[in-house]
Every structure is written in C-alpha cells, then in structure tokens.
Amino acid sequence: MQSKTVISLVGFTVMLGMSAPAYAYLDPATGSILLQAMIGAVAGTTLFFRTSLHKVKTLFSRQKQSERK
C-alpha cells in the first residue's frame, strides 16, 4: 500500500509540474497536417458546391411551386 501511495504522489507531482497547454499534448504529425491542408481545401470546395447546388435546386423548386400557384 505504501508503495502505491508513493506512486500516486509521484504521479501527481509530475503531473502538476507540467505547465504545457493541455490541448497541445498530442503531436499531430507532419503527414497528417499536410494532408489536412489539402483535404480541407477539397472537402470545403465539395461542400461549397453541394451547398450552392442545393441553393440552386431550392430556387428552382420554389419557382416551380410559385408557377403552380
């Protein structure tokens, strides 16, 4: 039990000794970052087109509806 207590205290002290911002503890790796820079652009563009397409579609369906009226 005593040794466990020591582990616990050591663990905690070491933990408190770190002042790095908590959110930065994971190294995202360079390959992933470069890929994200690319995917981000592609995914964003796709999304932009999808949204635009949707807007155009709604525009037409609205027109159709108003035509019916």
């Binding site: 790796a29 360079t30 390959g31 992933s32 970052i33 470069l34 890929l35 994200q36 820079a37 995917i39 981000g40 652009a41 995914a43 964003g44 999304l47």
Partner: peptide, 27 residues
C-alpha cells in the same frame, strides 16, 4: 498521408504550407 509523412520527415516540416496549415470548420 503515408507519402506525405515519409516526405515530411525530411523536408516538408519546414515548409510554409505545413506551418500555416489551417482547416476551416466546414472542411
């Protein structure tokens, strides 16, 4: 990702694209 990881460990880490990489929320 594998290709960029292999490449990046040598050169790309210092590139502009790496340092300024941003991912918009929608992306």
């Amino acid at each position: 990702q594998a290709a960029m990881q292999n490449k990046s460990s040598r050169t790309a880490a210092n590139s502009e694209r790496y340092r300024n990489a941003r991912l918009p929320r929608t992306s």
